[in-house]
C-alpha cells in the first residue's frame, strides 16, 4: 500500500467556462492533515468541488490520483465508496428525508457496492447513537429532516456526525468553521480529532486560523488566485494571522 493517498498534479479547473484553479500540485500522505488557506476567491471551494466531483465544475487539465485510482473518472458516489468525504460549507436541506433514512441509505449503498449485506437495524441504531453523542446531538436529531430548520452550528455538527458515521479515509472540511460560535467550533474540532488515525487523512479548508488551533495540520498551503503560492508548516498560519495574506507572495 502506497503511503500516498491523494496526489493532485497540474490541476486546472473552473466553472461556466471561467478558469479558477490554474495549476495545483498537492500530495497528501496517509495520516496527514493539510490545511488549505487563502483569501476569498482564491479557489478553495473550487478545489473541494472538483475533488468530490460536483457536476457543474470542469477539469481542463491535470490529474488526481486517489488511493491509486483516477479520481476524476469516478462518480461522486464512487468517490464516497472509496472513502472520500466532504463536510459542506453550505449543507443542503432535504425536506421529507430523515437523518436516519439518509444515513441508512448512505451506509447501505456503500455496503452494497462492497458486496456486503445491509447493516442490521440494531447495529445501525447503536452506531447512530454512538456518533450522535460524539457531536452532542440529542435523540430527536435522528428523526429530524436533513438540515431542515437547523441552526448554523447544528448543520456543521451534522456534517461531522455524517463523517463519523461513514468513517472516511479522506475528509475535506470546507470552511467548516464559518458561522460557528466558540462552543460549536470546539464540538466540531473534537469530533474531527477523535477520528484522526495513521490511516486517515484530510484537507482543512479555511480562511481563518482559529480552527487550525484546534485541528492542528501537518502541512499548510496558501492558495491565491488558483495557485498554491506557499507550502510550509504551522508557522505559516501565524504569519497570515499577524501579517495577512498580502505578506505571502
Amino acid at each position: 500500500m502506497s503511503d500516498l493517498l491523494l496526489e493532485i498534479k497540474g490541476l486546472h479547473a473552473g466553472i461556466a467556462g471561467k478558469e479558477i484553479l490554474k495549476g495545483i500540485d498537492l500530495s497528501v500522505r496517509r495520516g496527514e492533515i493539510h490545511a488549505v488557506m487563502g483569501p476569498n476567491g482564491a479557489g478553495k471551494s473550487t478545489l473541494s468541488a472538483v475533488l468530490t466531483g460536483r457536476p457543474d465544475y470542469q477539469v481542463t487539465a491535470g490529474t488526481v490520483t486517489f488511493a491509486g485510482r483516477n479520481l476524476l473518472e469516478m462518480a461522486p458516489e464512487e468517490r464516497a465508496w472509496a472513502g472520500m468525504f466532504m463536510s459542506f460549507q453550505y449543507p443542503v436541506e432535504i425536506p421529507g428525508v430523515s437523518i436516519t433514512n439518509f444515513m441508512k441509505a448512505a451506509i447501505n449503498a456503500r455496503r452494497k457496492a462492497q458486496g456486503l449485506p445491509e447493516m442490521k437495524p440494531a447495529e445501525f441504531l447503536k452506531l447512530m447513537k454512538e456518533k450522535m453523542a460524539l457531536v452532542q446531538m440529542k435523540g430527536e436529531f435522528a428523526r429530524r429532516e436533513v438540515n431542515v430548520g437547523f441552526s448554523g452550528g447544528e448543520k456543521k455538527r451534522n456534517e461531522i456526525f455524517q463523517m463519523a458515521m461513514l468513517e472516511p479515509v479522506f475528509s475535506i472540511l470546507d470552511e467548516t468553521d464559518s458561522g460557528l460560535d466558540v462552543d460549536a467550533l470546539k464540538i466540531v474540532a473534537d469530533g474531527v480529532n477523535s477520528l484522526r488515525s495513521p490511516e486517515r487523512s484530510g484537507i482543512v479548508i479555511t480562511h481563518y486560523q482559529r480552527l487550525l488551533q484546534l485541528i492542528v495540520p501537518d502541512v499548510v498551503h496558501v492558495l491565491k488566485d488558483g495557485r498554491i503560492v506557499r507550502t510550509g508548516g504551522i508557522e505559516l498560519v501565524d504569519q497570515i494571522e499577524n501579517e495577512g495574506y498580502d505578506s505571502i507572495a
Partner: peptide
C-alpha cells in the same frame, strides 16, 4: 440535493428516488 446525497455514497438513481 442530489449532489449532497451522492457525495454521501447514495447512487444517482436512488438519490432521485429519495427526493
Amino acid at each position: 440535493q442530489e449532489f449532497y446525497m451522492r457525495s454521501r455514497g447514495i447512487p444517482e438513481a436512488e438519490a432521485k428516488q429519495l427526493q
